[in-house]
Structures are given as C-alpha cells and as structure tokens.
C-alpha cells in the first residue's frame, strides 16, 4: 500500500495531524489525527510502497512489543488509514 498523494503529516502542539493538501483536496475536507506511534509509522513509510508486515517491523523496532501484537496493531492501523482514504491498497 501507499500514502495517497497530497496528504501531509504536521505536528500540532503535542498532537499529529494528517492533512489533505493536494490539488484534489482543494476545498479543505480531510484531516485525520494520529497518535505518536502512528505518526512514527507514517514518517517511515512516506513516499514508499509498504505492507502491513513493514509496519509491524517498524513497531517492534521502536517499541517493547511482541511480533504477534505488533502485527495485529499494524493490521488495525492500516485498515483505518485505508478507510479514512489517506492510504491506498
């Protein structure tokens, strides 16, 4: 999967927002807030093709979490991003 063109991660205070800034988002209409671990993943897959397994690896690299749990969290997050229309399958 891949982040859809025009979606940009921006820090707001202690929070993170993904904002639609592409030409297709001309009438500001999409914004998703991310927690810090989701923002960490986003930064590492920006501009690349990635899989759920890549996300899970990134999670186990950075957090004290076992592989099974990481895979589950990665699946949930990827599904959310696709549903929100900020990532394409």
């Amino acid at each position: 999967m891949k982040i859809i063109d025009g979606f940009v991660l921006r820090p707001l205070g202690e929070e993170f927002l993904v904002i639609g800034e592409g030409i297709s988002q001309i009438n500001f209409n999409k914004m998703v807030s991310l927690n810090s671990s989701a923002a960490y993943l986003w930064q590492h897959v920006e501009g690349k093709e990635f899989t759920v397994a890549d996300l899970a690896d990134l999670l186990t690299d950075a957090y004290e979490v076992d592989a099974e749990r990481a895979l589950k969290d990665a699946e949930t997050l990827a599904a959310k991003w696709i549903e929100a229309g900020i990532v394409s399958e």
Binding site: G6, I19, G20, I26, F28
Partner: peptide, 12 residues
Amino acid sequence: ASISSSASGLRA
C-alpha cells in the same frame, strides 16, 4: 479543522 476549512488558500 474548523479554522482551516474556513481559510482561503491553495494548499497544493
């Protein structure tokens, strides 16, 4: 989101 959606500008 509230202020952004009411501010003019070509974000591309």
